[in-house]
Design a protein around this nucleic acid. Structure first.
Lengths: 208, 208
DNA sequence: TGTACATCAGTGAACGCGCGTTCACTGATGTAC
DNA sequence: TGTACATCAGTGAACGCGCGTTCACTGATGTAC
């Protein structure tokens, strides 16, 4: 922070916020050309800095990408938790809200989503990455547990399995239909409606 | 074909089967380093040929990748159709077989699956690509129609929507859990069991 | 409050490397007669 | 069946380019006294 904090402009010899600027540059470039479509040098250029400067902050391009993925999962977890909002006003409404938040994130933060799920970043690549990913998944799991708890004791499916199904369907819809992936398939409904309908059918199948 | 057809060995000045050799090289390299992890020059090297040779067959790396994706969809469609085997012996069994075939393809032909869904290849990149992808999807849709037809006329969900749900769940499970993606999440069950359970719940929700 | 000094976060020049691409060429194949 | 010739599918040398990476350096910041 400090003197270079206004709209990210350079102010002198030191950038002052290069780490953040590199993250933003990486997100921009992912948005333009996909997760494989940029280099360390590109990121430096986009941040308005010499090609040697990024080495003060990241070991290499993969470390930068790993940090982007980590921040993505942190943001994702926050968004999902907020949407779930502790199950209120009632579990079904919270559940729908969670699903919409999932797709909204995949669309609005498409570059983050790409770095998290499509860039081939290993969860062990960056300290804290796996924890951040776990935290995001925990939101889904908590929601599943809450729904399961509504069922009579004899007919409760395993909440873990249920949350994996929900995650798979949401991720499947997001990556097949909800990305601006130039040339994907036209749908008879929006991805949000598709996911909502899918989750309703699934929950009915569980007896909810 | 002809004189260089035995196990792909070079036999003289002409390769004789370079196109196929480049495809195989691309698949190998995707398997080793991911869809972004190889270059046109790498493919030439792996095929045992000078770096100028591939230009006789492909405009550039993207054209090669596009061809790989197209062949992948063709193979995928065949496998799905064979698994469905015209709905026999009964629709539910055929349905399960289809699901297993989906995951088996994603695992056994991981390089093809990558080129098809993770390499960012546009469906318009290569003539015939979209048609091949449509044919694969048509298998899923036909299966959905067959299951829908078993329901009483008043309670038939749209088969297109149903097939999109099934595709999304299968793709979600394949890409989140069934890839050897180094560092993914441990599961309480196999991806096949997870998909089978998910489809059963979903179908029960439809009233099947 | 001022000064000296350590540390931090940049610069810019340099390098080796491999990629993409073109080119004139050449060996092998196919075909017309 | 043999020969001449067109075409095809390779070679290998060359090039310009941008990337990754290192290095000695330097300007700015923070802090001890």
């Amino acid at each position: 922070m400090g003197w270079s904090d206004h709209r990210g402009e350079r102010r002198g010899y030191h950038h002052g916020n290069l780490r953040e600027a590199l993250i933003r540059a990486a997100l921009d470039l992912i948005g333009q050309k996909g997760p494989a479509g940029f280099t360390f040098a590109d990121a430096a250029r986009a941040a308005g800095v010499s090609s040697a400067a990024p080495y003060r902050h990241y070991r290499d391009r993969d470390a930068l990408l790993g940090d982007v993925a980590k921040r993505g999962f942190e943001l994702f977890a926050e968004r999902l938790e907020r949407a779930w909002s502790e199950g209120g006003p009632d579990p079904m409404a919270a559940f729908e809200s969670l699903g919409r938040a999932y797709l909204a994130f995949a669309r609005d933060e498409a570059s983050y989503y790409s770095a998290m799920f499509e860039a081939g970043v290993s969860l062990d690549a960056e300290p804290g990455l796996r924890e951040a990913a776990d935290r995001a998944f925990a939101s889904l799991r908590r929601a599943a547990e809450s729904v399961v708890a509504q069922l009579p004791a004899g007919r409760r499916p395993p909440a873990l399995m249920m949350s994996l199904h929900i995650w798979a369907m949401a991720h499947g819809i997001a990556s097949l239909f909800a990305r601006a992936d130039a040339g994907r398939r036209p749908l008879p409904m929006t991805p949000e409606e598709l996911l909502e309908a899918g989750l309703l059918v699934y929950l009915r199948g569980l007896g909810v």
